[in-house]
Write a protein that binds this DNA or RNA. Structure first.
Lengths: 339, 339
DNA sequence: CTGAAAGCGCTTACAG
DNA sequence: CTGAAAGCGCTTACAG
């Protein structure tokens, strides 16, 4: 592999001149620049980023850290979109993307550490969806810029980008209320996830707006899987037969719930309406097509990366939490209330 | 950030000794090693991989190159699994994963180049699903080890790992034949993808085995989207009303096809059976649950990475194509033939 | 406009 | 068992 020395020798100049010609910054005569570039071309020379990283303070790599990838995590459907968004922005700046994931929460800390502490990245985007997550992962001690794709950054509420889960849930439940539903059960998820808490908050807000009281018996907790939705629906059905709608914290549980409802002989949405959350790809294909809430995952990834680069470039010191709108997608699974 | 000099000074030894103590290889007295490690700990010292990469020939990064990520690509559902598999193996060896994707096929080459030519990786896993892909991407000139997750590596059929698409299709179509179907339409995909060609080959093989002749009118080409499956089903229905089953090259088109069949008043599987391919997560939740073929994506990623590390470590010079079995998953969408 | 020289942070023979 | 020194491939003031 050709080095800068080879190029310099071939072109009959110093390595300094080659370096300058390549960074096409300061004063280099057009003539020598052309000569150098020709040799670079001929020798197929590519500067070693490792060497460059040693002199400049930059590695031209950003990290994307995902603490726990699993079917368990409800945001999975969006993960690929997040990645693509971050990668798009990185590419646009000739940056590379180092990906670090952990198989289990217990491994997350070491994955973070490895990535962030080898001085291999100029900054990182962290997927941080649990309260206290950045700290528990030891990110607080890092001195790289980082932004969180989620609710919790090392800088408190700052340097964070996430969707407006609360508003999304609010819209979904308002939609059900508008349709005349007054008994709206909830299939929720594990509590440590802030997005879940926000969605529940949105639900309560919507009911409160309309002065509809809700019963604690209306809440059943699932674990994001269709199976748990299936079971939760059964519990709800038995415990609160008066419900005419169910708000599910994610689409997969909504699908499971609908299967159960059908198994019980109920028609969706005629007998009972169901609304999901996430708009996973199969939501539109489901029978009946699922009314749900979509977050702009690709855009979230792009914005997170964009902000990270502003931090890296010291254009900004920090930024206030960016909240992206969540969109209600009305499909067939929500209908008019039975009354 | 502490450097090796800081540690050396604090510990009262040379940088060489620090280096040795850390690589815990050659002869260093237990006493000095302990002293050094204590200082390392106290100063929170982490060696710079950039500097290390400059001296050693290693960067401790492998690349994962995905030429085109899009809904268009039928293998999308598996992408995350591939990534996870590769990453698991990398993690196990304390390697990092650099991810390069391209938004469009036209950008693929530059994405590859950037990743592979900056000397930033010790090797790479390439997702290469089109014939001639590695060459068109300029990978042939690289002098890093690489293995292809797909059918086409720069080394011809070698250094490749993929699922047995042909065998998978064979099983699926045999299954339909076993159920008594003799008129089996096909919704296929764009031809440059080798996996598609293999699946079609499996289909033809199955029919040939049983001496069932097939008509070219039975084939309709889709583009992997549910919509195209929807349209293809309509064409098939009109053109060949005698068909009692449809073999779809992927699940998403199978879902679209089923929606169309139902819209036409046909029952699946009672009136017409449908089989998909991929076993995407929603296949099991679909109504009716989809009979399909699954490839072991996570394992494929792991094996590809595993092989890559063997190449990097020069334990092997190359390896023969590894073909993983594809599994037939029988669900409700395939049933007995009409009659 | 161009080049000599130092330095980035590590590792590796080579002496001792 | 330990250290001095060179070198990995680049960039950056500093002279000229």
């Amino acid at each position: 592999m050709a080095t800068i020395y080879d190029v310099a020798k071939e072109a009959g100049v110093s390595t300094a001149t080659v370096s300058k010609a390549l960074s096409n910054t300061p004063y280099v005569s057009e003539e020598t620049r052309a000569r150098v570039l020709a040799v670079v071309e001929r020798l197929n020379y590519v500067p070693s980023l490792a060497a460059r990283g040693l002199t400049k303070a930059r590695t031209y790599i950003i990290g994307l850290v995902i603490p726990y990838v699993s079917d368990y995590l409800f945001s999975d459907p969006h993960l690929l979109e997040f990645i693509r968004g971050v990668e798009q922005e990185a590419n646009a700046r000739d940056y590379n993307l180092l990906l670090a994931t952990a198989r289990a929460p217990s491994e997350a800390a070491s994955a973070y550490q490895r990535l962030l502490r080898t001085q291999y990245v100029d900054g990182a985007v962290l997927v941080a969806v649990r309260r206290g997550e950045p700290d528990s992962l030891g990110v607080g001690k890092m001195d790289y810029p980082c932004v969180a794709l989620g609710y919790h950054s090392p800088y408190g509420p700052d340097n964070t980008v996430h969707a407006d889960d609360r508003q999304g849930a609010l819209k979904a439940v308002r939609h059900l209320l508008d349709l005349g539903h007054r008994g709206i059960g909830v299939i929720s998820g594990p509590p440590p996830l802030t997005a879940v808490e926000e969605r529940l908050a949105g639900y309560r807000l919507a009911l409160a707006e309309r002065g509809v009281a809700c019963d604690e018996g209306w809440f059943v907790q699932g674990d994001f899987t269709p199976e748990s939705g299936f079971q939760a629906a059964a519990i709800l059905l038995e415990r609160c037969p008066q419900l005419t709608a169910i708000f599910c914290i994610n689409d997969r549980m909504a699908m499971g719930a609908i299967q159960r409802l059908r198994a019980e002989g109920l028609r969706v949405p005629d007998d009972i309406a169901v609304v999901g959350f996430d708009d996973i790809p199969s939501a539109a294909l489901f029978e009946p097509p699922l009314t749900t809430v979509r977050q702009p995952a690709l855009e979230m990834g792009r914005i997170a990366a964009h902000k990270l680069f502003q931090l890296i470039g010291r254009e900004i010191e920090s930024f206030e939490s960016i909240v992206l709108p969540a969109e209600l997608i009305v499909r067939a699974s929500s209908g008019n209330a039975r009354r």
